[in-house]
Amino acid sequence: MAQISSVAQPHMQQIDLTTLNIQQLSTLKSQLDNELNLFQESLSSLKIAQTKFQNSGETLGQINSESEGKEILVPLTGSMYVPGKLYDTNNVLIDIGTRYYVEKDLDAAKDYFKRKTQFLTEQMEKVQVLGFEKSKIRDAIVEIIELKLQQQKSS
C-alpha cells in the first residue's frame, strides 16, 4: 500500500511537493486526512481498551485472601441479581483473547494487567508519533496549495 512519510526510506520515491499540480496535491491531502482520521480512531479505541485493563487491575486490588467466603451479588441479567459467596479468592480467570481464559493467582493477574496497560501505552505513543509526522506533511501540502492558488490568481 502507498505510504507517505517525510523521512526518506529506501523503498520510497522522493517527490518534490512543489512540482505537483493542485489536483494531485488535493488528492494527497485527502489521503492524508483519511489516515489522520484513522489514527484518531485508533487512539480512542486504544484508550478505551487501556481504561478497561486499568479498571480490571484496580478491581483486583480489592480482592485478597481475606475476601474468601464474603457475600456478593452476582448479576444474572442487567437487572436481576442472586446472592453468592466468594470462593477461591487467590485465583482469578482472565480472558486473554480469542475465547481463551487462563487461571492466574492475584499477583500474576496484577502483573498481566500492568503489562497490558503498558503495552497499550507504547502502541499509543507509536500512533501519536506517526500522526504528528503526517499532520506536519499535511500542513506543508496545504501551504503549497495556497501558494499555488495565489500564483494562479495573480497571473
Partner: peptide
C-alpha cells in the same frame, strides 16, 4: 494480531497452568 498476543501469553505460562476455552 490477536492470536499472536494470545500465543505470547500462552507461551509465558507454566506447563501446569489451567486454561479454559469459552464455547
Amino acid at each position: 494480531n490477536e492470536n499472536e498476543i494470545v500465543k505470547v501469553e500462552l507461551d509465558s505460562l507454566a506447563t501446569d497452568a489451567k486454561v479454559f476455552k469459552s464455547v
